[in-house]
Design a protein around this nucleic acid. Sequence first.
DNA 1: CCTAGAGATGACAATCATTGTCAACACCTA
DNA 2: TAGGTGTTGACAATGATTGTCATCTCTAGG
Lengths: 135, 135
Amino acid sequence: MSKPPTENMARSTKQRTAILELLESDDAFRSAQDLHAILRESGSKIGLTTVYRTLQAFADAGMVDVMRLPGGDHLYRLCGAEEHHHHLVCRSCGKTVEVAGPTVERWAGKVAAEHGFTDVGHTLELHGLCASCSK
Amino acid sequence: MSKPPTENMARSTKQRTAILELLESDDAFRSAQDLHAILRESGSKIGLTTVYRTLQAFADAGMVDVMRLPGGDHLYRLCGAEEHHHHLVCRSCGKTVEVAGPTVERWAGKVAAEHGFTDVGHTLELHGLCASCSK
DNA sequence: CCTAGAGATGACAATCATTGTCAACACCTA
DNA sequence: TAGGTGTTGACAATGATTGTCATCTCTAGG
């Protein structure tokens, strides 16, 4: 993928700026609803629809990582890396570590080939308790 | 886990039998809604609520595998293996192959340890085009 | 065989994140 | 500064899943 980061965002608005700043100040995954609530508490009049659309645009542009909760909710997090990677998330505090998984990529390709599958992609997530929350 | 397959199912009813038979006759993942629709077409008067509850019970009992679609929907499939495993699913026809991933398990444990995480679990899914659908 | 009661069912309402709609608005360039 | 175009936001709609509760049906005991 080589999309320019702004492909889906022709303009710069205060709403987008606000969302971006909020994401920059937090390194855990947040839901659209959470972000919207936080912005409203901060005095912003931003609409929920806008938060959803903006986050999707960010995601399409590769500016944020998207993750799905068991319940099906979407969580977003700022992400600079262009590279393919996975996440190790603390299920207690939400702290997230980005992890490269060349081993897994190779394994996935091999297994897929063995079964005659082509054009194979994968989703992988690790969740546990971080060092602090383990105590 | 060593739950008996019937832990959450004290009784045997025609509804459960019907769902089980339907699952046995199909080796692809199906949604609760799909199964319900099929059963209704077959003349059954089964309720949607019952299909959901039964599938959940089956899942709790470890009799079926559960998978989540990008949209957040739940898909179910009969599964005999007690062992932990992953799925290689054809995104065209739904054909599914169960895959053991000792390599991945080991990798996950190592990565988690490196970052001080404990009690780590993971979710992994492979999706591509099967041999037939690749043509 | 009959009966009681715990477990199971199903119609319906409720939930809730997400998406669609569309008129009003704000950004940016000329 | 003006205008057109991308954006916004209030609101309705969607759709899968879950909650509720009166009714039903297994199944064991008599």
